[in-house]
Design a protein around this nucleic acid. Sequence first.
DNA 1: TACATAGTACGATGATAGTCGTACTGTGTG
DNA 2: CACACAGTACGACTATCATCGTACTATGTA
Lengths: 126, 126
Amino acid sequence: MQQRVAASPSAPQQESAEDLPEPLPEPAPEEMRLEVVMAALSDPLRLEIVRRLLLESEAFDHTCGWFGFDRPKSSLTHHFRALREAGLIRQRQYGLERRSQVRVHDLNARFPGLLDLVAASPSQDL
Amino acid sequence: MQQRVAASPSAPQQESAEDLPEPLPEPAPEEMRLEVVMAALSDPLRLEIVRRLLLESEAFDHTCGWFGFDRPKSSLTHHFRALREAGLIRQRQYGLERRSQVRVHDLNARFPGLLDLVAASPSQDL
DNA sequence: TACATAGTACGATGATAGTCGTACTGTGTG
DNA sequence: CACACAGTACGACTATCATCGTACTATGTA
């Protein structure tokens, strides 16, 4: 289910190391706090973001526009930043776009089972 | 105001499940929402309550006083109710005391792995 | 009966967080 | 250069929540 954990900062040598942009500032795995992660996932929109990133695009990262949420851009910025600062997603800047992916490897190591809960949660209409 | 005391002995015991007081109102397992559970666990005090119930007293239920938190009683009422309404704990009235236990069976069936995350989280000084 | 105990109910307060409009920054393209 | 585009920054408003004091209820006991 989960392949292509590209560009972990500690092991940047994958076979096709296309030079990815540096991730935006994010907590290290050992800095993640369970309460903070829970708080990030307690918002329905953010839970849905992580769920869809897991189920529909695990191998790729996506822009906030990809989700098609009918919300102002400033609201989306707010929620994506909350997810990144909690450690749930990694964001990289590709020219115009800021793309997000779930930190599957880090989260499975730090909070085993957490992403399974998110993936199993029912989808939400937002 | 409805608390069914049902004339049971004041000492809580495990041998006969039939004589236990009725649990206070709580959501059925299929009514539990992951966002609500996450929100309940995003408070440090509540996370610690569930953690200690799991690690120090899984087989027994306990009063709020048992935890020894240095908080007003009304604050504890607030947090225990939040946990119960989210579905995390079951509360029963034994005479004077209201005792709480984690709904281990229900939660493991509904959100497998969730309680492992709580049990593995570091203890907090509160 | 009187009193202590365990906890609730109510209301006030302060802090945090979600929502959103507007203005702005930086990037790519013609 | 001019302009469209993706997203941020800032500020305002609002709702929710954690905290707590006080008063109150219900139970158990002397």
